[in-house]
Design a protein around this nucleic acid. Structure first.
Length: 108
DNA sequence: CATTTGACAGAGG
DNA sequence: CCCTCTGCCAAAT
């Protein structure tokens, strides 16, 4: 797919496609977009996306299921959003991460 | 144009 | 699981 999408836009699309109550990792998104190993780029996109509203970056965590970007959300905002979607978060990390994991490469 | 940086990932200890 | 080092890619300065 990747219809006329610029670097960041493609990432925003995938993040917006994450089902409610699900989460994914930067690497999974990067791999889906073909930039395996470019996971850092995904984080960069999120940094730019945090100014947007339709990008549920709170559903994107690192490979360990840790809310790496919670600091960018402003306090416990990220954790609250996840808990509202049925995801339990403890000490900045998702409980049963694999259980809530959503892989774009498999689901899309 | 070269260097630094960044919300990562994987391997090793 | 935590810490450290290396590898990757693109944007920002």
């Amino acid at each position: 797919m990747a219809t006329n999408l610029n670097s960041f836009d493609a990432i925003y699309q995938v993040v917006q496609l994450i089902p409610k109550g699900k989460v994914t990792s930067y690497g999974a998104i990067a791999a889906y977009l073909g930039m395996k190993g470019g996971a850092r780029m995904v984080g960069w996109a999120m940094n730019a996306s945090h100014t947007l509203e339709n990008v549920p970056a709170h559903r994107v965590v690192n490979r360990n299921g840790i809310l790496t970007g919670k600091n960018f959300f402003g306090g416990n905002r990220m954790q609250e959003l996840l808990e509202e979607e049925g995801i339990q978060v403890k000490e900045d990390k998702i409980i049963g991460f694999q259980q809530h994991f959503w892989d774009p490469s498999s689901e899309l």
